[in-house]
Design a protein around this nucleic acid. Structure first.
Length: 275
DNA sequence: AGCAGTACCTGGTTGC
DNA sequence: TGCAACCAGGTACTGC
């Protein structure tokens, strides 16, 4: 499941093969993803050169002068750069044929998404897509810190885990990283967000940054070849302290890790280390 | 306004 | 062995 580090790893993996290349054609095999893939993708994109690839939250933006392709990988989305003669599978919904680099073979950018929670949308030049408009700060920038979390959480009664996963507060913290960051910060995930102290939010923000940065670094080191059709890009093994470890011993104190459901999502924590 | 709950989707796992 | 039930999870949406 792509979380922010996986999306960033994907961006870094495909960028060298895309930036500066023109898109020759777009093959759309299946448009009914999370939202219908709009017509502009096939009509406007061919002939355009990809100037840059940006990540915002878990979205990727392929920028051209005519507009930007806005991609979200959802739960099961994968982007790969492949030779054009690899036969598409049932879940290969979009191919973009790329102009070959000098002296190189043609390639395609292939968007695969079995569960179809992902999306491919269009952003007109000079505009910000409405899906991006309400997003909170990027976790790895100075715009995000513990003081922001603390201020925004005053009076909030929702569980701190849900508060942390709310994109309006900070983007890119998914279910797995939320459990891990709260463990690292010693905060009970069930606690009402408004009752968590400023000192603990400072710790939490620092742990979110540390864990995400570490995961991106790991993604870079375990990044498979994006030109290899078998390469699942950047889905690396996380060394998890609590997630998925119900009943196993806490790595810090030995207490059995507990599991509960918060906001319909599995949540794991150590009842001794997290208060 | 804040919050809980729902929906979307399918591969993999579990249970009968 | 076969099939049904269930689970995972990001995020926009609905409804209280």
């Amino acid at each position: 499941m792509p979380e922010l580090p996986e999306v960033e790893t994907t961006r870094r993996g495909i960028a060298p093969h895309l930036i500066g290349r023109r898109i020759v054609s777009v093959t759309l095999r299946r448009a009914d993803l999370r939202w219908p893939i709009p017509r502009e993708i096939t009509e406007v994109l061919p002939g355009q050169r990809i100037d840059d690839i940006e990540r915002r939250a878990k979205y990727l933006l392929l920028h051209t002068t005519a507009g930007s392709a806005l991609l979200h990988l959802g739960m099961t989305g994968v982007l790969r750069v492949l030779p054009p003669d690899i036969a598409p599978g049932v879940h290969d919904h979009v191919d973009m044929l790329l102009e070959p680099a000098p002296g190189e073979r043609e390639r395609i950018l292939r968007f695969t998404d079995p569960r179809r929670f992902g999306s491919l949308l269009w952003q007109a030049p000079g505009t910000t897509h409405e899906l991006l408009a309400g997003l909170g700060p990027e976790p790895l920038t100075d715009a995000f810190d513990g003081d922001l979390l603390w201020r925004r959480s005053r009076g909030r009664k929702a569980a701190v885990k849900l508060f942390l996963m709310d994109n309006a507060n900070v983007v890119g913290v998914g279910n797995i990283y939320a459990s891990e960051a709260l463990f690292a910060a010693g905060i009970d995930p069930r606690r009402a967000a408004g009752t968590v102290s400023r000192a603990r939010y400072l710790r939490l923000a620092a742990e979110v940054k540390r864990i995400l940065a570490w995961a991106i670094e790991r993604g870079g080191t375990t990044l498979r070849d994006f030109l290899n059709p078998d390469g699942a890009p950047g889905y690396f093994f996380l060394e998890l302290n609590v997630y998925g470890r119900e009943g196993e011993s806490c790595k810090v104190c030995g207490t059995p890790i507990r599991q509960t459901v918060i906001g319909q999502r599995s949540t794991f924590w150590c009842p001794h280390c997290q208060k």
